[in-house]
Design a protein around this nucleic acid. Sequence first.
DNA 1: ATGTAATTATTTTCATGAGAATATTCCTGC
DNA 2: GCAGGAATATTCTCATGAAAATAATTACAT
Lengths: 250, 250
Amino acid sequence: MKKTTRRQGTKTAPKANAPVDTAENAHDDVTERIRITLATAIGEGALKPGVKILEDAIADHFGVSRTVVRGALGVLESDHLLERKKNRGTFVAEPGIEEAKALFEARRKLEHVILELVLGHATADQLDALEKLTDEEEHIHHHGDEKSKTVLSGKFHVVLAELGGNAVLTEVLSKIVARLSLVMSLYEEERKDDCGADHHRQIVGALKAKDLAKAQQLMDHHLADIEGRVRLTEGQGDRHTFLAVLENFS
Amino acid sequence: MKKTTRRQGTKTAPKANAPVDTAENAHDDVTERIRITLATAIGEGALKPGVKILEDAIADHFGVSRTVVRGALGVLESDHLLERKKNRGTFVAEPGIEEAKALFEARRKLEHVILELVLGHATADQLDALEKLTDEEEHIHHHGDEKSKTVLSGKFHVVLAELGGNAVLTEVLSKIVARLSLVMSLYEEERKDDCGADHHRQIVGALKAKDLAKAQQLMDHHLADIEGRVRLTEGQGDRHTFLAVLENFS
DNA sequence: ATGTAATTATTTTCATGAGAATATTCCTGC
DNA sequence: GCAGGAATATTCTCATGAAAATAATTACAT
């Protein structure tokens, strides 16, 4: 049956029933809210690659019609976070090996550039604030909660990018980081818990010492550590694909 | 009256009237075709910043309903090529001073990175092909046609990026270049015709000589030249805004 | 004639229904 | 019991109509 309370036909009810939304509604643009909701859900691994996205479900969760959901899905697709197969539906994207490599490389280069910018642009106060963020990471690291960890860890890099003072590059990096969370979700094989919080702290230290080369070196090391958790063998795609799973049991 | 031949209600007519499209329809996804059409139109300056986009017009030009046009406009907006003002319509974006500066900076950094990648990735053949592109530019440069010039000039940088072998960075750069064409259209004050073709050729030369530093330096010079055509005084916004024009007459 | 109010016309925005394509279930025959 | 296929149910896809908002035009008054 699936009788869901879609928004009623009475157009005179402007935004009567804002259902479960919960989160901050800085933008009252529903399309944008949906986009952000899905993007962060993907970014923090709540939505795994390959999962099917039901536009109907989203539609009545947000109390709007499929049309506006569709808008959000469209831009998410253009950001490579979703894939729409014609007449089949839309799914959380499953980046391939090539794409993963390109993303890692792009991120490495970008983080380098961003450190450069931060050094020439960020104030001491801002660096202090950034350091506080690493404190928070440290704290979370000891008090479990796997999700918060990855979220915080990603946040560091975005905040760092913001300190570079270039909104364009910040946006680019955040999108790449989001896509990389899909890559990790697909290909990560060992989640070693040495946790980047320490790396982050060291990077901030180098920045405060105005030592760009050191900061870049530390960043390289940090990123290499992340990439090291992943096996991108050209052999077969991801090990989550059904056939690959079977192979492990043969 | 404006009786426009929207696609008829008969769903049985699949793509009866494909009107004037002209261009290559590699993707038969109409949404994507619309997106590309508008993006290139903006990229080559045919659509100036601030121009209003009538979705109805586009809809019946492509023989589809407003819904699919709307999808294309949505992703174009998320790419910062269009702006949608609520209930007012969608317009070609008018990047502000801050955005322009960020775009220039981002491009500078990216082109550096890309040169790095090209040097480590491109084959001699590919560099030859790139050089041929500069020949073409040279030829176009002498045989007028303002539009072809700017198109070709932008193309060089995108092709160069492709030789870097990183699809992610290529996509990022193309989007930035597209946005920069809006910036130029808004703020360019002197179109000096010394033309980048020569710069481009020099860059290819440095690349063939495997001289990264030289290539980067030449690229810097080239980009500085482009940025030099623009006046980004923090004083008042763009000189096209009505109030700014008035100020020039006070 | 100019400014203001009212009416009309465009245009955006969105919900919804119908059609098409795919997935699922059920049934039948071997 | 199981393969194959018909019947049913989901779900996407898109055109369209209706409501809301803005723009344009006319009418009117000072």
